[in-house]
Simulated scan of single mutants.
Amino acid sequence: MSQKKRLAVFASGTGTNFEAIVTACERGQIPAEVAVLVCDKPAAAVVERAARHGVEVFAFQPKSFPSKADMENAIADELDKHGIDWVCLAGYMRIITDTLLSRYGGRIINIHPSLLPAFPGARAVEQALAYGVKVYGVTIHHVDQTVDGGRIIAQRAVPYEGHDLDELFRLVHAAEHELYPATIARLLAGEVS
């Protein structure tokens, strides 16, 4: 029997996608284990979620590093220490640069709350609602040097014609929590590239 793949999840906030990934791993829906949470906000709620699941946390203050390259090298060293196979960004609100990409490029994926290439970057749901789109969605993509521009792995449409931002967020999050674990499982099984 092959050894389970080891995942790192990067998050900056409440950690609902982190929770969806960890739970799917615990239930055997993803043939992997979340070995470490990487968090740039030590007081974020996701840190508590990790503790409840027994997942080790690498939390840090970005300003404690002399440069972004130093920060990303420290992150990559932590990933190496845990033998990480794949990195899953889940609400990590920092742009990944060549420093981390040079060590983990091709093995970093992200979830974004829009149907890319529409509405890349921050506040995508709010931008889409203000624009008046009728079909929202989520995208899982490889991470490269561009902001939300890496090769798309999977997408799911979220039809909504209302105007309530909270309701829209609820629908988008529900789609994320289903699509991200399923896509990670398919990626690890070699069903998607």
Score class of each variant (00 low, 15 high):
G190M: 11
L188C: 13
L188K: 08
E19Y: 05
I95D: 08
G121S: 08
K68Y: 01
V138I: 12
G132T: 14
C25E: 04
C39W: 05
K4D: 06
A185F: 04
P62N: 13
Y180P: 07
G121Q: 10
Y180Q: 07
D85L: 08
A11E: 11
R6F: 04
D98P: 03
S114M: 11
D164M: 07
Q3W: 05
A122W: 04
P62C: 09
Q145D: 11
F169A: 05
R94M: 13
T146Q: 08
V34M: 00
Y92M: 09
Y160L: 06
T14F: 05
D166L: 05
P117A: 11
A128G: 09
A154Y: 11
H177W: 10
D85I: 07
P117K: 12
K5V: 01
E48L: 12
R186G: 07
V47F: 10
A11G: 15
L168N: 00
L187K: 08
Y136E: 03
I96R: 06
I96H: 06
E176I: 10
T99S: 07
A8T: 02
S193M: 10
N17C: 13
K68H: 12
H163D: 15
G105P: 12
P42T: 07
L89D: 13
T139C: 11
V36E: 13
A154F: 11
L37N: 01
V47G: 09
E72N: 04
D70L: 09
I153W: 03
L116Y: 07
A118S: 15
V22I: 14
I152Y: 01
G28I: 00
V34K: 02
T16D: 14
V158H: 01
Q155Y: 07
I184G: 04
E178C: 01
P42G: 09
R27T: 02
A8K: 02
E72H: 04
R6T: 02
F119Q: 11
D164L: 05
F119I: 10
P113F: 12
V143A: 02
G132K: 10
A59W: 01
N110E: 04
R107S: 14
V133D: 06
A51F: 02
F18I: 10
L115F: 15
V192T: 15
V36A: 14
S64N: 14
Q61W: 01
R94A: 06
G83E: 12
G162D: 09
Q155H: 08
F18G: 10
L165Y: 06
D166M: 00
C25A: 07
A8F: 04
E167D: 03
T183I: 06
P42S: 03
R107E: 03
E19C: 04
G13N: 14
C25W: 06
G91D: 09
G105R: 12
V55N: 11
A124R: 05
M71T: 00
A20N: 08
A8V: 04
D166C: 00
Y92S: 01
F169Y: 15
E126L: 01
I108A: 11
G137I: 11
